[in-house]
Nucleic acid binder design. Sequence first.
DNA 1: GATGAATGAGCTTTCATTCAT
DNA 2: CATGAATGAAAGCTCATTCAT
Lengths: 185, 185, 185, 185
Amino acid sequence: MTCDAIVNAAARVLSTEGIDRCSTNRIAEVAGVSIGSVYEYFENKQAIIDAVALRHLDRISSMFDNAIVVLGDNADLQTVVRVLVEAVIAAHGHDVRLHRSLSQEVPLSEHVLRKAEEFKHRTVLSIQRLLGDHLGTSDLSAQIVFDSVDSIVHRWARDCEHKPVPRERLSAELIRLLEGYLTYR
Amino acid sequence: MTCDAIVNAAARVLSTEGIDRCSTNRIAEVAGVSIGSVYEYFENKQAIIDAVALRHLDRISSMFDNAIVVLGDNADLQTVVRVLVEAVIAAHGHDVRLHRSLSQEVPLSEHVLRKAEEFKHRTVLSIQRLLGDHLGTSDLSAQIVFDSVDSIVHRWARDCEHKPVPRERLSAELIRLLEGYLTYR
Amino acid sequence: MTCDAIVNAAARVLSTEGIDRCSTNRIAEVAGVSIGSVYEYFENKQAIIDAVALRHLDRISSMFDNAIVVLGDNADLQTVVRVLVEAVIAAHGHDVRLHRSLSQEVPLSEHVLRKAEEFKHRTVLSIQRLLGDHLGTSDLSAQIVFDSVDSIVHRWARDCEHKPVPRERLSAELIRLLEGYLTYR
Amino acid sequence: MTCDAIVNAAARVLSTEGIDRCSTNRIAEVAGVSIGSVYEYFENKQAIIDAVALRHLDRISSMFDNAIVVLGDNADLQTVVRVLVEAVIAAHGHDVRLHRSLSQEVPLSEHVLRKAEEFKHRTVLSIQRLLGDHLGTSDLSAQIVFDSVDSIVHRWARDCEHKPVPRERLSAELIRLLEGYLTYR
DNA sequence: GATGAATGAGCTTTCATTCAT
DNA sequence: CATGAATGAAAGCTCATTCAT
């Protein structure tokens, strides 16, 4: 309860006020608990930030896992690409401001970065399995598939407030990008 | 002179010690001037960071402009794509650690972000001019061209210390990505 | 039972971890009771420390009393001096680390200091009775007898880890000191 | 100036309010400077305490050195003993409350303890030189001479507020103690 | 312009103590 | 009696900024 309130508060402060205003005292205040309680549940400030990041990563991770499970084993290229693009967009849409803060201004600890790396690795492996026939022999191709979509969506999410590009157009264009890449030559 | 020394020092500290150690006093120390002098030339710390970021952006910007000038008006798709990819890789290679610090840990002010936006807009316009025939009617395509390459190279530069992927393989794969995208359908 | 467990725990933490680590929560943890229980039995932290100190004083005190009882009324100077020196050394040897902590880093309350003063006063009176013939008229002599031995042994106990002087040599030298003092002129 | 003010303030707070109230903020307040200035001159709190202790040690040390220089090389036992006892009493009289605080409640760093050890060692060597003929072969004797006087005077200084023993009587008794020790057998 | 001693708001963290259960 | 989550005052310390020289 209290523990969740603290993580929620930290996520909220990070999203809405940025890391500079995200002091332990502010977190406690927003969580509606005393600063002492914060340190009952977390060893230090970094541990709070890590908890926020891990929870966010978990949510994104399970969105992906679901999408991939839904695809099953025999989906055709078009379907795979579409589902993949939609999953990435959905994942970024989940909590845009928090996502931005976590990926741009917050210093994450090794532990969290490793977890994120593991997530990406798992996802790249899934892509390899799903698109194996269409990829070159190199494992770089699957990475390019993941990174191109992920990073473009990331920028779209970052900028979508002052430069609103409709989600459907983005989706269509990314699908074209991947289909082109995967069928070229 | 003094002003340049300060910006140089800030860039160096940011690159080598990270934003956490980049205090105004440390900047002054590395620049070999007094903290008082720092405030003669810059209104506050943010102004120094902004100056570093703007200078970095200018350098990258002119690297691009040169590449585009070199291309001239009648280059074929293959050439445009290759030059573009190489230019992006070269730009990120210019000062990797500073680039990483500026794009990951440093909070940039609105003013700088707008300048970066302007640079991107100019570049997208150039891409539109160079690749007009191969793009759809929408300006989104040119953005995708730019963002896919830029953001993948960005990640490559970020991760290249512990996961070294040879520059040539990256380049080849990105060229395939763009050629596929631009020739699909 | 619980009360004893708390005092034991406090003594142990004080001896082995020092006053800096001797928080009430740590005491409760080592005692195997909740922090709430600690405050059922003791009004505040100082009261715990005082209990530890008083128990230690009691033990030392009874070691002395025993030694003096053993001496009886008709012991000669040599015997009295020898027994006294041995008693002081034994007392300091009882729980060296706790003794050191209590006498060097722990702030004791008035109440405990008064008790310690009373113990010293009783001991000085015993010395006066035992050595009456060899002392001047002043009670200062008995105090010098006590303090010289007690404080030198105290330093010996404090330093004996890095500068080990054999117990026998210390004892012999202190006996010489007292015999010289008591037979001079 | 500011640096001295800080050390003075720390010494005063330590003497009059004890280590528990001797926070860095209190030191700054008493010194009449801001907390920031304290950290301009001292790396951390321990460094301030150390500076206080070292200054105190220096003063005591030079009082001793003077006394020993005054004695010259050919002083007889009576003179040496008298001057020694007076020097110890004078040293402890210098700043009783600070002395008490430094020796009882303040945790001193290794560096300071080593300096204090060096001072004691130098003094014991001087005693050996001055009293060589009257001491046994062991170096323990010179230490006993020093420690007995030093520690008894230390207690006298500690207690002299509520149990005032005249300085002359203490001096006379200590002289008897040393003369007895040094002439016995 | 240049200096750098001085400032003080605000940070992270600890720990003696309380009180509803 | 026992519990332990919760408290919050206060600690040590940092650093962007100022201003008298």
